[in-house]
Amino acid sequence: MNVLDFAGAFFGDGAHWHGYDGIPQRLLEHVQYSLLALGLAALIGLPVGLVTGHTGRGGNALALVATAARALPSFGLLVLIVIMMGFGLLPVMIPLVILAVPPILVTTYEAVRSVDPAPVDAARGMGMREGRILLQVELPVALPLILSGLRSAAIQIVSTATIAAYVSLGGLGRYIVDGLYQRDYEKVVGGATLVAVLALVTLALFWAAGRLAVSPGVRRR
């Protein structure tokens, strides 16, 4: 049996499509965890990245924080937090948010820094206030890069949210962890396939968001 056979068997089994352990339920849980983690990470990373990028100050401190956050192993952190805090949603969110903040933070900072200084100078010269310069001049131009940071954070979250199952929560990781302990490769391959598909859907959503939100003048077509 190869990987494709496993996947075929998993998705062909009608029992996997409904109920408490059914694919729709697990998918929904996975999307919920992912959205929550991405939302929290964006809430931290975007404002800090935008403001530091605009002022140009604190870039080194920011790089340091990002490096440290990236160095923390998600899985180890999860186990440590569960041992100390017990089971729950929060112990899962902490490593996921720590995982997602660096790409959002660093990319947003770099995106705003890389905006051509000439329009910013022109905007200031015509009497625009700083907040308005950031939101109306720099942000629209930096948006494609900022979205790419959010996108890579989102894909990492979707892939890593599987660890929730290790600490008794749901999500698509359930199939992978259960499959591991039950030696049921169908389940493992099925779960992994679903995660990969979800990542592709995420990619497509970000592509669509880029088409909608980024000005044709910035996309240059």
């Binding site: 992994a192 979800l198 592709l200």
Partner: peptide, 18 residues
């Protein structure tokens, strides 16, 4: 490569055990 990147490491490990 993006699809491969999205495959969770644990799933990758388990499949390879075989």
């Amino acid at each position: 490569t993006t699809v491969l990147y999205a495959v969770p490491s644990l799933a990758f490990f388990v499949v390879l055990i075989d």
